[in-house]
Amino acid sequence: MRELLFATGEHLLIVALSMIVATLVGVGLGILSSWKKRLGTVIITIAEIVQTIPSLALLALLMIIFGLGNLTMGIALVLYALLPIIRNTQVALTELPPAIIDAARGMGMSRSQRLTQVEIPLAIPMIFGGIKVALVNSLSIAVMGVLIGSGGLGYIIYRGIQQRNMARILIGAIPVVVIALFFDWAMTKIEQRLSTHTT
């Protein structure tokens, strides 16, 4: 039991830290993509390519560069999380009603004032939606961490497989599913709350 709690905590911590980094980088790149169309296409294409690399292959690659451990897993999670966040940020910012942008410009807001006071607040629900998708994905991808010497629930599942112990496998797998479902549900609720004053 203690082992399970510890593994769950570790799992969540790795995911949480990766998501914080992914959000900062992803939103930043998303904003950049909405400003510079060309550059945006390049950024999103790269993120798409990363997304298509099988997780096992990506982990192996990263392991060669960064060695074994939590850091490598974290980097992999960040790379996978970037695409939904960048894309949602970029789409949300480019599809804002032109009249609102026109009003903001016409009233004398500078570009950064527009971004912080109007554009980001209106894009928040969609950006949050991107973070949700990324987070739910990360929870399951993090299970692979055991292969590169990172902790988390993957370790329990892996031990179960080695011992051909079905119960152990389930003890590791069920929390992953439950946690993912919970976050999906809770964040969908929050997303709805956030969008009450955006139209």
Partner: peptide, 15 residues
């Protein structure tokens, strides 16, 4: 900032 601006689509900030 020294010139008021009103448009047909109103453009109030919904947030």
């Amino acid at each position: 900032r020294k010139i008021g601006y009103v448009i047909q689509q109103i453009g109030l900030f919904p947030n």
